[in-house]
């Protein structure tokens, strides 16, 4: 039988992303004395297989912003294409105006919400951080377009495991060294308890002077803690 032209028009037989394939886990971000710091590991999981170990998940956008992503890596790459084009056209004006972190965050909110309305979401949680005209900015957007600003932010598992530590120990005027130590403490907890986390991470720093993204490095681990002994105690399976 001949197929009847669908009610939804040309988008009828378009296939949508129904679930993510290669994903990155938590991104952490916080404000400190001189600007904003973000941390993310470099893992890319293919389902639950740790398939890629060298994925940069925090990228600079223009002079004033950083964007970090957890979730579908290919969708993040597409988002970066949008942002790089946006910054290119912004620079082509060649005037004294430029897009700051607030503008980037709002733009991403529109993109994410627009795609979820097409039932074809970009499968990411994004963190946007930056400094412009002396003002620090940190915000996040989810795959549904839910967005908010805060002094410290974590996506995915980090929202459960890192945020409580950040709430207890973070302050807006902490030094760079203290802020890095705090992020490493959070990343270590995530490494211990989040199975998708890997021990290879980058910390990105943005200040009025510009962006620096660290070389990948590892944290020192200690698995001899009693909490790690006999992991199935109290949670025994039926076999």
């Amino acid at each position: 039988m001949e197929r009847i032209e669908g009610l939804l028009g040309p988008e009828d037989n378009k296939s949508h992303t129904l679930s993510p394939y290669v994903t990155g886990t938590s991104v952490l971000g916080l404000k400190y004395k001189d600007g904003v710091l973000m941390a993310a590991d470099m893992g890319g999981s293919y389902g639950s297989t740790l398939r890629y170990k060298n994925v940069e998940r925090v990228k600079p956008v223009g002079k004033h912003s950083l964007v970090g992503a957890s979730g579908e890596i290919s969708d993040f790459q597409e988002i970066m294409r949008y942002l790089d084009e946006l910054i290119l056209y912004d620079n082509m004006w060649d005037d004294d105006n430029s897009l700051g972190p607030k503008e980037i965050h709002n733009y991403l909110t529109r993109v994410m919400y627009n795609r979820r309305n097409k039932f074809d979401p970009l499968w990411n949680s994004l963190v946007v951080g930056g400094v412009k005209n002396g003002k620090k900015y940190l915000g996040t957007v989810s795959m549904l377009g839910v967005h908010y600003e805060d002094d410290h932010i974590a996506t995915g598992f980090g929202n459960h495991l890192a945020r409580p530590i950040l709430r207890a120990e973070h302050s807006n005027d902490m030094s760079y060294e203290d802020a890095v130590k705090l992020l490493e403490k959070c990343m270590l907890v995530l490494l211990y308890r989040d199975r998708s986390a890997i021990n290879k991470l980058q910390i990105s720093n943005i200040t009025e002077e510009g962006v620096t993204i660290s070389q990948p490095y590892s944290l020192k681990t200690f698995w001899g803690l009693s909490a790690f002994k006999d992991p199935t105690k109290g949670a025994q399976g039926s076999w």
């Binding site: 005037d95 105006n97 700051g100 503008e103 709002n106 733009y107």
Partner: peptide, 12 residues
């Protein structure tokens, strides 16, 4: 303003 939540530059 809808897209960027900030005012459009006059020159642009």
């Amino acid at each position: 303003s809808f897209t960027y939540e900030s005012p459009l530059a006059v020159g642009r």
